[in-house]
C-alpha cells in the first residue's frame, strides 16, 4: 500500500504541475453542473418544469411515485442530468490514465521505475488511483453543488428529496467511482499495449461509450435508472474492476515495453 501511495503522489505532483490538466479536470464537472442548473432555472422561471407527463417516456411515471405530473416532469429532467455524474468520473481521468504508461515510456522515465523493487500491480494501482481519485472527488463536489442548486432552483421540494434518494446516492458515490476505476483500468491497459500516447488516448476514450448509451437510452425511454439497475451495475462493476485490474497486470509486459517500444 505504501508504494501504491508513493506512485500516486508522484503522479499528482507531476500531473498537477501542468495547469492545463488541472483546468481540464475542473472544467467538465463545472460545466456539467452549471448547464443543468441553468436549464432547470430556465424551466422553473417559466412557471413550470417545462415537461408535462405526455413529454416523458410512459414507463418513467412508475418511478415518480408520490410526485405530481409536473413534479415528475421536473424529476425526469433532473435524473437525466444525474447520469452525467456517473459519466464524469469515467470521462475525466481517461486521458490522464491513457498517458500514464506510454507517456512515461516516451519521456524515458519508465525504465528507472521498473528497475525499482515495485510490483506491476502496485505500479498500475498507483497510477489508476492517481487518475481516478481527483475525478471522483471533483464529481462529488459537483454533485454537492448540483444538489444545493436544485434545492434552491427547484419548484418542488418533492423533487429535491428525490435527488437524495438512496438510488442516486449509490449511483454517484459507489457506481461512479467503480465506473471510474473500470475506465482507468482499461485506459492503463491500453497505455501499456500501444506505443503512441495519441493512440492510447483515442482508444481509451471508447470506454465512455457504454455509459453514453445509458444516457441516451434514458432520454429515448429505453432504459430507466432505478434501484434494481443501479444495484446490478454496482455488483457487475465490482467484479469487472477486479477482472480488469488483474487483466491489466497480466497484459503489462515489462520486457516488451522496455525492449520493443521506440
Amino acid at each position: 500500500m505504501h508504494k501504491i501511495w508513493v506512485i500516486t503522489r508522484k503522479e499528482w505532483a507531476e500531473v498537477f504541475k501542468n495547469r492545463f490538466v488541472l483546468f481540464t479536470i475542473a472544467f467538465l464537472p463545472l460545466m456539467l453542473t452549471a448547464l443543468p442548473l441553468g436549464v432547470l432555472y430556465a424551466a422553473g422561471s417559466g412557471g413550470e418544469a417545462g415537461l408535462s407527463s405526455t413529454d416523458m417516456p410512459p414507463q418513467f411515471a412508475q418511478i415518480c411515485q408520490g410526485l405530481s405530473g409536473e413534479e415528475c416532469g421536473e424529476y425526469y429532467l433532473v435524473s437525466t442530468f444525474l447520469i452525467l455524474y456517473m459519466l464524469m468520473p469515467l470521462a475525466i481521468p481517461v486521458t490522464i490514465a491513457a498517458y500514464s504508461i506510454v507517456g512515461e515510456k516516451a519521456t524515458r522515465t519508465l525504465e528507472p521505475v521498473l528497475a525499482a523493487p515495485i510490483s506491476t500491480l502496485q505500479l498500475l494501482v498507483g497510477k489508476a488511483l492517481a487518475a481516478s481519485l481527483p475525478a471522483i472527488l471533483v464529481t462529488w463536489f459537483g454533485f454537492g453543488v448540483f444538489a444545493v442548486g436544485v434545492r434552491l432552483i427547484s419548484v418542488s421540494p418533492g423533487v429535491s428529496a428525490k435527488l437524495l434518494d438512496p438510488v442516486w446516492l449509490v449511483a454517484v458515490f459507489i457506481v461512479g467511482p467503480l465506473l471510474a476505476l473500470a475506465a482507468v483500468s482499461v485506459a492503463v491497459m491500453v497505455s501499456s499495449r500501444v506505443n503512441d500516447p495519441r493512440v492510447a488516448e483515442q482508444v481509451s476514450m471508447l470506454v465512455i461509450l457504454p455509459l453514453l448509451g445509458l444516457f441516451f437510452g434514458q432520454i429515448a425511454g429505453l432504459i430507466y435508472i432505478n434501484q434494481r439497475l443501479i444495484l446490478l451495475m454496482a455488483g457487475v462493476l465490482v467484479v469487472a474492476d477486479a477482472l480488469l485490474l488483474t487483466l491489466a497486470t497480466q497484459l503489462f509486459e515489462r520486457e516488451t515495453i522496455l525492449t520493443r517500444w521506440k
Binding site: K3, K10, E14, K17, T109, E111, A116, P117, I118
Partner: peptide, 21 residues
C-alpha cells in the same frame, strides 16, 4: 537516458525513488 521527471524538483525526483526503494 537519465529518465528524470522534468517538471519535478531535483530533490523531489530523488525523494520519489528513495521511497520506492
Amino acid at each position: 537516458s537519465p529518465g528524470l521527471y522534468d517538471r519535478l524538483g531535483v530533490a523531489r525526483n530523488l525523494e520519489f525513488f528513495a521511497a520506492l526503494y
